[in-house]
Design a binder for these strands. Structure first.
Length: 502
RNA sequence: GACCCGGUAGCUCAGCAGGCAGAGCACCUGACUUUUAAUCAGGGGGUCGCGGGUUCGAAUCCCGCCCGGGUCACCA
């Protein structure tokens, strides 16, 4: 069936060209968006006709209702949908018959006309001239139910965007949120920078990297798992307030909150500590929520989340003591193992850092409103500066919202000798089989040896943040093209070669 | 990786006590000059995810595989 429709349309394109009509013209100047038209003419009453107002508009045909010598149809542009009305006695017989025969749902059309309100009160464009702007070869999904097949939604996102205004708006909201973040940081004197995505050694997080190969040097490289170590090199070099928004890559599982490539923002500020960063985090995220949702109390999956600052702060040690009765500084590893077992958690990697990580996850699950969990042990924080009051702890915080880790930050470790020791410990873990332990980065240590000012750094998982503001249950709903297993195109059974020869 | 659910026309879905593969939308033909899921009459369109098995006969039952979704595990 698809084959038939497609072949029919391809034939039609040849017909059009033989009639001197180009089905893919190069240009049409569109003067107004649906949003602008609706705003300007919304005051019209049913039956009002403004035949002196001339509007040039263009969009995709989403539906057509033929009525003999007239037709109503809807056009969609990036801001919305608007109805248009075409009559034989206005556009002329040949133009009308052309419309009837050659314009289908899915095609792009440019129209010239004036606004009126129909009997039923819908703002409508009365077509005086029109031009076919692009001919669709394939039919659109069902107009009423839309596209529901998740597989097609993820593999052919453009189809979901065509069919679902909700989807289009969801992604607009995502990218508007990015703009809010940039404006917020730019107005505070932060400079957006770029650092490499191809890394010689990975660092800045615990994760399995993607490995790739650089031909010119005949060496393997990694896609970055985090930009952290390069951004701190920039602080060494003299930058004081910087941020980077970009993709990170982690060769790990896919789930409703994980995609192998995901977007983060990392922010670094010299002469600041993690307390300053907490304040910045609150203000930044509250700004994003307020500007994109219009309020600070939003509903996520039926649960209210209140982003009104200031947010709760709890010390990790106290939180775990209170909720689980374990002391992450004093108790032995087997106490942790026992406690995890009680809660039905099996662990594969049995080093202390990993056990503490698991315990932390247990208690963080219960946190709904934005909460800073602070002062993590040194063992699980190899890049964070030791706490000014307790050298077993670090000045670190994680932001938990709805049980999920949204941000991670610390007063940055700028003591090169301590950093080197921490790397050594990580190297040991790595040798013991922890593939996610940090790699030794001697160039980074060397950079610190030249001196890094006291600095605070912050990383936010933006996709996860955008899930909240768009009330999306899965990270794939906020990533335009999430990773899917590729399918052979031959499954479509459509001949592309020679397909245009009729 | 484990378990659960699913895959039927381009799309949304029926059909699965085994017996000719269906509807609506979309598409084509015709009627219709204010409709809006327009309406009316007619028509074309299928590798029932793939492969095997059971059976006189499989979309339907059994086994294996592929793809997707969900839950869990690993991770942000």
């Amino acid at each position: 069936m698809l084959k038939e429709i497609r072949e029919q349309r391809i034939k039609e394109i040849e017909e059009l060209r033989s009639l001197g009509v180009e089905p893919y013209p190069n240009h049409f100047s569109k003067e107004m968006t649906v949003e602008e038209i609706k705003k300007k003419y919304d005051r019209l009453q049913a039956g009002d006709v403004l035949s002196e107002e001339k509007i040039r508009f263009a969009g995709r045909v989403m539906s057509i209702r033929h009525h003999g010598k007239t037709a109503f149809f809807h056009l969609k542009d990036t801001t919305g949908r608007i109805q248009a009305y075409i009559r034989m006695d206005t556009v002329g017989e040949s133009a009308f018959l052309f419309f009837k025969k050659h314009v289908n749902v899915g095609d792009f059309l440019g129209i010239e006309g004036f606004p009126f309100k129909s009997k039923t009160g819908e703002l409508t464009l009365y077509v005086e001239n029109y031009k076919l702007l692009s001919k669709a070869l394939r039919p659109l999904p069902e107009k009423w139910h839309g596209l529901r097949d998740k597989e097609i939604i993820y593999r052919q996102r453009y189809l979901e965007l065509i069919m679902s205004d909700e989807a289009l708006n969801r992604f607009k909201k995502r990218f508007e949120a990015v703009r809010v973040i940039r404006n917020f940081l730019d107005s505070r004197g932060f400079l957006e920078v770029e650092t490499p995505i191809l890394h010689y050694v990975t660092g800045g997080a615990e994760a399995r990297p993607f490995v790739t190969h650089l031909n010119v040097f005949d060496m393997d490289m990694y896609l970055r798992i985090a930009p952290e170590l390069y951004l701190k090199r920039l602080i060494v070099g003299g930058f004081e307030k910087i941020y980077e928004i970009g993709k990170n890559f982690r060769n790990e599982g896919i789930s409703y909150k994980h995609n192998p490539e995901f977007t983060s923002i990392e922010i670094y500020q010299a002469y600041a500590d993690y307390n300053d960063m907490m304040k910045l985090t609150e203000e930044l995220i509250a700004e994003v929520v307020l500007k994109t949702c219009g309020k600070l109390k939003i509903t996520y999956q039926g649960v209210e989340i209140d982003f009104t600052p200031p947010w709760k702060r709890v010390r990790m040690r106290e939180l775990l003591k209170e909720k689980l009765g374990v002391d992450i500084l004093e108790d032995e590893d087997d106490v942790f193992l026992q406690k995890l077992k009680e809660h039905g958690v099996e662990v594969e990697i049995k080093n202390r850092a990993h056990l503490i990580d698991k315990l932390r996850e247990l208690v963080e699950e219960e946190i709904i409103n934005p909460t800073f969990v602070v002062d993590h042990p040194v063992t699980i924080s190899p890049l964070a500066k030791r706490h000014r009051d307790d050298p077993r702890l670090t000045e670190r915080f994680e932001l938990i919202i709805f049980g999920r880790e949204i941000a991670n930050a610390f007063t940055e470790l700028n003591d090169p000798i301590d950093q080197y020791q921490r790397f050594l410990e990580q190297t040991k873990l790595r040798e013991e089989g922890d593939e996610e332990a940090h790699m030794m980065d001697l160039d980074f240590v060397r950079a610190l040896e030249y001196g890094m000012p006291p600095t605070a750094g912050l990383g936010i998982g933006l996709d996860r943040l955008f899930m909240f503001i768009t009330d999306s249950p899965s990270i794939r709903d906020v990533i335009l093209f999430p990773l899917v297993r590729p399918k052979k195109f031959e499954e479509e059974e459509i001949e592309f070669e020679g397909g245009f020869e009729g």
